[in-house]
Amino acid sequence: MKNIQRSILLVIILFLTAVELRAQNGLTGVVTYKSYYPDKKQRNRSVDMTVYFNSYESLLANLGQTSQPAIKVEKIDDGFNFTLPYGDSLGGRIYRNIKNNLMVIRRPENSISDAFIVKEDWLAINWKIETATKKIGKYTATKATGSFRGRDYTAWFTYDIPVPFGPWKLHGLPGLILEAEDSEKMMRFYVTEIKIPYNTEEIIKVPTAAKELTLKEEAYMQDNFDDLLAKKLNARLPQGSRFTPNPSKDGRKYRTEKTYEWETDAINENKK
């Protein structure tokens, strides 16, 4: 009998502490987006993107796919087939913390580099919140427009879920972003699933990697990806054969980020 009473008391205490914990931190949840990234071949391929959040942190991660690294098969004009590694057990991640304005991006291993992290300067998006609304699922979403690194986005967020997070690197609205598209329709994100509450305590952690690059270094790597790849591949090719990348005239047309702060600042400086 006493034991039972004790147990009940324990349960009540635990319950109360749980409530107390919740009261301090708010509910945690997870949101999944169907996302489209720029694709030169316009295959209209989407990937599922999952963002875990609490009241001040969010982590974009694909936990379902961690067990096996993704393999990307590239075909090269000469007829050689290469299997280029892309992805590793942790995958690409984006961590955000609005408490200390920290953004950490983790890039998985790819054909020219080991996995690395980039600590980004906090770049607030100057959203303009408009009057237009529409229904997304059962939520009323409000339109907002803003620019981020060379793309002009239209986002639809809901006041019903008051967290400032969103898909990819988009954030900073008075509610969760449910949809976002850039004006070229190359970057597109649509919410497919929302779960609140969802225990994210064990999930949301700052990503790590053995190597750390600056954003500038990463931009340089992306800009010169083909040349860096060619350098690396030519060493491995059989005798007499050579891999020359097709010089791409597209520049950053198919990149998620088309301009960077230091570049636009430089332009602005020049204008002045």
Partner: peptide
Amino acid sequence: KEESIALNDVIVRTED
């Protein structure tokens, strides 16, 4: 005031 909510939504994009 605390209010327990439980959202478990699968959202099908009506427009697309």
